[in-house]
């Protein structure tokens, strides 16, 4: 794996390098800017970093999060009701990337990217957003509803020009031609969902099907993979280890923090890491 992009994206390459050397599966966790309260976000990041997570997604809340299940959908609504603003979320990430070396990725929906304009500027769009995200020190973007065929948006090109990895999400029902198209534009790693459906539902992983899908993704895209959706236990992380570089735990840790606070979150992350 060679880094094709100069900039913050290198933090992702470095994280995967560390994961590879450790022989242990990596862990990517997820927070929603503004949830449960804006003032909790820094504690969340701090706890995650100290517990040793390898990558962190910061979701910028959107009113209509199509790919998310009820836990994250409601959390986004709470965040918006709390008055979470996109620019504040970007500024928050800027502070966190200054403070910590962990690679932080923005996760959001395409309308947030498409609508963005920098404070005091009128120009909206992908180029404005990627510029702001790169300036904030983010390493990549995860935008599930911008498919590779919407070429006129120039989304992957603009991400790369800004020094960000465009992370593509793909699912086990993907066709060969689509996976190939994703492989052509994706950089950094591929985010594979463990199944179809939305985030956050506790269902058993079909490891036989998933193993084949992850192998196909590795073969076609020639990038490491992170697996998310329904990952909540150490035994799942271990089962994934031979097939994927990183496990993604989102909704489960969000609920853990809601129920048990920062200390509970820390313990749960350590458990997921087998410590």
């Amino acid at each position: 794996m060679t880094s094709k992009i100069q900039g913050n994206a290198q933090r992702i390459d470095e994280a995967f390098e560390r994961i590879r050397k450790s022989g242990e599966p990596g862990l990517m966790t997820h927070i929603i800017y503004g949830y449960p309260r804006v003032e909790d976000n820094e504690v969340l990041i701090e706890t995650m970093v100290e517990a040793g997570v390898d990558l962190i997604e910061v979701q910028l809340p959107f009113s209509d999060p199509t790919a998310d299940g009820p836990t994250i959908t409601q959390a986004c609504q709470v965040a918006l009701d709390n008055g979470a603003h996109i620019q504040e979320g970007i500024d928050f990430v800027a502070r966190m990337t200054e403070k910590y070396d962990v690679p932080i990725l923005f996760m959001s929906y395409f309308n947030i990217v498409f609508s963005y304009h920098a404070p005091g500027e009128e120009k909206r769009g992908v180029s404005s957003f990627v510029h702001a995200a790169a300036k904030a020190g983010a390493s990549g973007l995860i935008v599930p509803d911008i498919p590779p065929e919407e070429k006129s948006e120039r989304y992957p090109e603009l991400c790369k020009e800004a020094g960000l990895y465009p992370i593509y999400v793909t699912s086990p029902n993907v066709s060969d031609h689509r996976l190939k198209a994703i492989g052509e534009v994706a950089e950094g790693f591929i985010y594979c969902t463990s199944r179809t459906g939305t985030t956050g539902k506790d269902v058993d992983l079909d490891m036989e099907m998933l193993g084949a899908f992850l192998k196909q993704t590795h073969d076609v895209c020639k990038l490491p993979v992170a697996v998310g959706f329904s990952i909540a236990r150490r035994d799942q992380v271990e089962a994934l280890a031979p097939h994927a570089e990183v496990a993604v735990v989102g909704s489960h840790l969000l609920r853990t923090f809601d129920e048990k606070g920062a200390q509970g979150l820390r313990e749960e992350i350590l458990k997921l890491k087998g410590k």
């Binding site: 199509t66 790919a67 395409f110 599930p144 509803d145 911008i146 498919p147 065929e149 919407e150 006129s152 593509y168 999400v169 793909t170 699912s171 029902n173 993907v174 066709s175 689509r178 994703i182 969902t193 179809t196 459906g197």
Partner: peptide, 19 residues
Amino acid sequence: AQGHYGEYGGRYVPEMLAP
């Protein structure tokens, strides 16, 4: 072929719906 009416339309969906 991709469902565009000029700059509008298209198919901006999570990958799992694309197939």
